[in-house]
Design a protein around this nucleic acid. Sequence first.
DNA 1: GAGAGATTGTACCGATCGGTACAGAGAGTC
DNA 2: GACTCTCTGTACCGATCGGTACAATCTCTC
Lengths: 194, 194
Amino acid sequence: MLKKGVERGEVLRALGEVFRAHGYESASLTLITEATGLGKGSLYHLFPGGKEQMAAEVLAEIDGWFELNIFAPLREADDPARAIAAMVAGVDQYFHSGDRVCLVGMVALGSARDAFAGAVDGYFARWQVALASLLRRSGLSKGQAQRRAEDALLTIQGALVLARARNDAGIFRRALSDLTKRLLAPPDRDLWTG
Amino acid sequence: MLKKGVERGEVLRALGEVFRAHGYESASLTLITEATGLGKGSLYHLFPGGKEQMAAEVLAEIDGWFELNIFAPLREADDPARAIAAMVAGVDQYFHSGDRVCLVGMVALGSARDAFAGAVDGYFARWQVALASLLRRSGLSKGQAQRRAEDALLTIQGALVLARARNDAGIFRRALSDLTKRLLAPPDRDLWTG
DNA sequence: GAGAGATTGTACCGATCGGTACAGAGAGTC
DNA sequence: GACTCTCTGTACCGATCGGTACAATCTCTC
């Protein structure tokens, strides 16, 4: 018997790795039973909604991790430099310095996108808002804070894609380093602000 | 009967759209016959190697398009500002301002990655080299040129992912605009250069 | 118009897909 | 130990997967 509660987290972690490794559509029930060590009986007992529920819960768990370790600290921080360094360190840790792929981004590109559109959009939206609020407190205009936060998210996603495409984790490391500098740079002197 | 040569390009174009819309693994033969208007008989006559050959040829055709319209102009250009503007315009056109996904990046994230690793890496590698060579001619150090070229590729990929995830093509447009500025900025005054 | 070769639709293949049914094993209570 | 209720392995479902076989058809050449 499953030891309630505690173990579900374990299962979700294993599920996450399967989805990351093969993508939502290609993660077959066979692959899933192997990765989790659970037969179909257990799987469908745990997730009556099937694969879709599994993926939804995995996404929710990822969201929870980021909420706790990235978004909330960003919202509550008062020292921008320290907060950004912490975010970058957290991201680097989570993505294993570029070896791990972003399941949320992956889902966004795949054909299962529509089924999880809300979760995907919410994840990025809350990240952007949290980061922008910190940037705003660091003295940036609202527009610039939003733009820089958007730039941060897209840089991380792009670095993950390119690092995987070229099989070079250094790309991710360098991108995070550059990103830190860009986020902490003084406000741009644009046409409408300078 | 197929009108030799000319038509194959048409078929590849349709194939590309199916792969882009569903991903390599989820693009079923049924989907493919619908999109191309070709039955299995024709398909396997045209591509004896099956799905894998289809994808390989689609990737090669994409590569060819970029070689002609992006990489070569980059290598041959003498005016950096103009060349970068042309690249950005070409990219914007190819990706339909963020509405179209990058098949190469998509394959890189999927489980078919290994089968096409060479093509994927080559595509990005030649892009980076071509862009870096232009940047070098514009006065950047070798290292900076390489880094900025890397940044450009990753920005484009990330913008495509985020634009799709958030269903906001504006993200792509803004990213390209920012990217242009970053590429044309004067050399960074880093520890070892300044 | 006969023959050759290229091209195509259709039936079919075994494998696997996600999902269901259900008998029975395991644990908790009395 | 008998009664629950939770949990799980296995057999099975129809559908679909990528791919093959092949006869029929088309286009061209002579």
